[in-house]
């Protein structure tokens, strides 16, 4: 009975860990940060992406993040393609998995959208254009 329970626990433990992304785990315990993960964020009917958001609780925590990701001194919203393992590193699109990073100084927030393939990349651009047009229409 004890052996069986031990086997079950050993099987369940890695499964539970897999449910959380490495980026989320990396920042979730850092003080001054609120970290969220949205799985399967819908871009269109057939394409979804996973998103990790880092929100600084105060200005000091945001300054630290800004330095870490090399966006200090910049204004507004900044965006770049990032390495999946090292999100501060800028990379180009090669068809391999990347993160679309978006940083908003006003919201003190960094968001990382994981793009595993070209379909997700295209859908993300379509979503951005669709939302931008919609937002402009609503503002009129």
């Amino acid at each position: 009975m004890k052996k069986l329970l031990l086997i079950v626990m050993l099987l369940v433990w890695p499964l539970a860990l897999l449910a959380q992304g490495s980026l989320y785990k990396q920042y979730a315990s850092r003080p001054g940060l609120t970290v969220a993960q949205v799985d399967g964020f819908k871009l269109c009917d057939s394409v979804r992406v996973d998103v990790v958001l880092l929100q600084a609780d105060d200005e000091a925590a945001w300054r630290r993040l800004a330095v870490e990701f090399g966006i200090e001194g910049e204004e507004g919203v900044v965006s770049w393609l990032a390495d999946t393992e090292r999100p501060a590193k800028r990379v180009g699109w090669t068809g391999r998995p990347v993160l679309r990073a978006v940083a908003s100084h006003a919201r003190r927030t960094l968001a990382f959208y994981r793009l595993d393939n070209e379909r997700q990349y295209d859908a993300l651009l379509d979503y951005q254009l669709y939302r931008m047009k919609g937002d402009k229409k609503n503002k009129k």
Binding site: T34, L53, A111, M132
Partner: peptide
Amino acid sequence: IGEDYWVDLAGDLLAESLE
């Protein structure tokens, strides 16, 4: 913090990054 907050934020940031 509600789940909807993060979902809305993820969408808003994408829209803002193109503006």
